[in-house]
């Protein structure tokens, strides 16, 4: 259970006040001890105010907000009965390079649409075409948060940079998960597969109770896997597919593999 430091502000103010009094007294009476005490109190009072946490949301509220949207996505995909592959489209498919969409083809083994075909539906959150569907991925906001933390857009990075920086963003900056490992492997056909292992993601409990996702929803990915797919597609400039996701230890470890599609 998280301990909330709710009393930090009054304690800081008391420390600042006492510290200021001690410092003033030490100057009047030339007392080294009082000066040390005053300096310490003032410093720690300021530190307590400065390192106060940002607004935190109870985990149970986050889970309550997250579950319905993912369940709706799952039901929507099943209703439309799309059977094709789910592909994360790179920035070159869109007029606005910061846009990211996923393309779900109606039938299996259908080729990807052309950028001109995609751009007609670019601004719609969900767009159905005769051959497939364009959808805003669930990890889009998380990927924007990652870019904001990184200080640059993923378009300006490359795969190697991503392998170095994403774990730091996940673990240290945003504390999304306890650990993230990313490795890339090239196979004999020169296509690249990326493996990601996420340990203790923040939503591990949410997905313990959620219904089993369909094959298609698993290919879209949960918000974290989706955000990683968006990062990969932007960094490489190529379409990406989530080929496999596995959950272990009650959702505490997730392994996902991403295939970069050579066009």
């Amino acid at each position: 259970m998280r301990m909330k430091i709710g009393f930090a502000q009054p304690v800081s103010i008391i420390m600042l006040t006492l510290g200021t009094i001690a410092l003033t007294t030490s100057i009047m009476f030339i007392s080294t001890i009082l000066a040390f005490i005053g300096l310490g109190l003032v410093f720690w009072g300021v530190i307590l105010l400065y390192i106060r946490p940002e607004e935190y949301t109870k985990k149970i509220l986050l889970e309550a907000a997250l579950s319905p949207s993912l369940a709706t996505l799952n039901q929507m995909i099943q209703e439309f009965s799309y059977k094709g592959d789910v592909t994360y489209l790179p920035p070159k498919y869109f007029t606005d390079p910061e846009t990211t969409k996923i393309y779900i083809s109606k039938d299996k083994d259908t080729s990807l649409p052309t950028p001109e075909q995609v751009q007609k539906y670019e601004n719609q959150p969900v767009a159905r075409t005769p051959r497939g569907m364009l959808l805003t991925p669930p990890g889009i906001q998380l990927s924007r948060l990652l870019e904001k933390s990184l200080g640059t857009t993923f378009i300006r990075t490359d795969l190697k940079n991503l392998q170095q920086n994403l774990p730091k963003l996940f673990i240290e900056n945003l504390e999304i998960a306890e650990n993230l490992e990313i490795r890339a492997e090239d196979d004999i056909t020169k296509s690249t597969t990326i493996y990601a292992k996420i340990t203790k993601p923040f939503y591990a409990d949410t997905f313990k109770e959620a219904e089993e996702p369909s094959q298609l929803t698993a290919s879209i990915g949960d918000p974290i896997c989706s955000a990683i797919a968006i990062a990969i597609t932007k960094a490489t400039g190529k379409p990406v597919r989530i080929t496999d996701t596995k959950s272990f230890e009650d959702g505490n470890t997730i392994e996902a593999s991403y295939e970069i599609i050579e066009e």
Partner: peptide
Amino acid sequence: ISPYYGKTNILINKKRLRNV
């Protein structure tokens, strides 16, 4: 209290503490 040690239950701004 670095998150690399798994200590993520302490609610302070760890980045600011590190900077200070």
